[in-house]
């Protein structure tokens, strides 16, 4: 058990380091000289001496390896560097931006879970019924379509309908949780699709297992079988896609925050790309990788609690 924990943590640190290195290569080594590109813009009217000073400030005049060691060292100390665009410490910018994204993620994740479970329960219960089977097969085709809905489009339509046409929720002048309510719900719809698909596939496979027949032969009602047997069995495999869902939420956050004008990590990332602000972009990548890894670890540690067959050694079960 402890050994397992140890190797998993070691692997997580390795992946974090790898992602850091990859993003460093991608953003700082390969483009050549980001600072040079930025400040050589004739519109800024800087003379060569000023540019050289700037480069020295950002450490861009050193070799790639020295830079790498320098950046790695300061990152390990919790210093994420300075934004080229605003000149502010990246850490402060992230601190200001992350609450919005976190709220958005929580709302959309909770919404997606509720949506997908209601959806699947409905479809599974209906499929027990003779005439309901057709409705059920129709319902189970819906995630295949919702997974293809572009988030940005859905949100534009949602603003138009909910805020302007029906005037239910205003778009401007909101803060905190109320500001992310509508965006979170809109984001939840496409995110619920992969969850629902995995949940439905596993639930249908569980439904075919011999023990379900044995339970029916004991006189249990379909609803009881669904709630206390099929759902507990289908839930742990669904957890394995949580990492994927996290990535989708982040991708959604970039778009959502742009559409709704929210000051979150997604907006920050989008601005960093637009202005080629590599330090900010790299910090955001690092944070999201850390989030991805911790969610993966968390789901791996929760799984044995939900499914006793999975030992803490990560053994997979076989259906």
């Amino acid at each position: 058990m402890t050994r397992y924990l140890f190797t998993r943590t070691l692997h997580a640190i390795f992946v974090l380091w790898g992602a850091f290195t990859l993003s460093f290569i991608l953003l700082q080594v390969m483009p050549g000289d980001a600072v040079l590109v930025k400040f050589q813009d004739p519109e800024l009217g800087l003379n060569p001496q000023q540019i050289a000073d700037m480069r020295a400030t950002y450490g861009a005049d050193e070799s790639a390896i020295t830079q790498y060691i320098h950046v790695l060292g300061r990152t390990l100390h919790g210093n994420l560097g300075y934004s080229i665009e605003t000149g502010l410490p990246v850490g402060h910018m992230l601190q200001a931006a992350y609450p919005t994204t976190l709220r958005l993620a929580i709302i959309s994740f909770a919404g997606a879970i509720i949506l997908s479970i209601t959806f699947c329960t409905l479809a599974l219960l209906l499929s027990e019924h003779v005439t309901g089977r057709y409705i059920a097969s129709f319902i189970s085709a819906i995630p295949g379509i919702t997974s293809g809905i572009p988030v940005f489009w859905l949100e534009i339509v949602a603003i138009q309908l909910v805020s302007f046409h029906w005037k239910l929720i205003p778009v401007v002048g909101l803060s905190g949780w109320s500001a992310v309510f509508l965006p979170g719900l809109a984001l939840a719809i496409p995110i619920s699709a992969p969850l629902a698909q995995v949940f439905m596939t596993t639930a249908k496979r569980v439904q075919q297992l011999p023990f379900i027949d044995v339970l029916r032969a004991r006189g249990l009602s379909p609803f009881r079988i669904l709630c206390s047997h099929i759902i507990p069995n289908a839930f742990p495999p669904t957890l394995t896609v949580s990492g994927l869902v996290f990535g989708e939420i982040l991708a959604g956050a970039v778009v959502t925050e742009t559409v709704f004008g929210l000051d979150g990590l997604g907006q920050l990332a989008q601005q960093a790309v637009a202005s080629q602000d590599v330090a900010v972009l790299q910090a955001i990548i690092l944070i999201s990788v850390a989030g991805f890894i911790s969610i993966g670890l968390l789901s791996e540690f929760i799984q044995p609690l939900l499914d006793p067959r999975i030992g803490r050694n990560g053994q997979q079960r076989k259906y």
Binding site: F211, R216, G219, L220, P232, P308
Partner: peptide, 22 residues
């Protein structure tokens, strides 16, 4: 449903897959 289990019961073929694993 009120007859199964009370009047007639089943002993299944494959014990390995006939109990809910979780």
């Amino acid at each position: 449903r009120s007859i199964r289990g009370q009047k007639v019961a089943l002993i299944p073929q494959d014990p390995a897959h006939s109990l809910d694993p979780v």
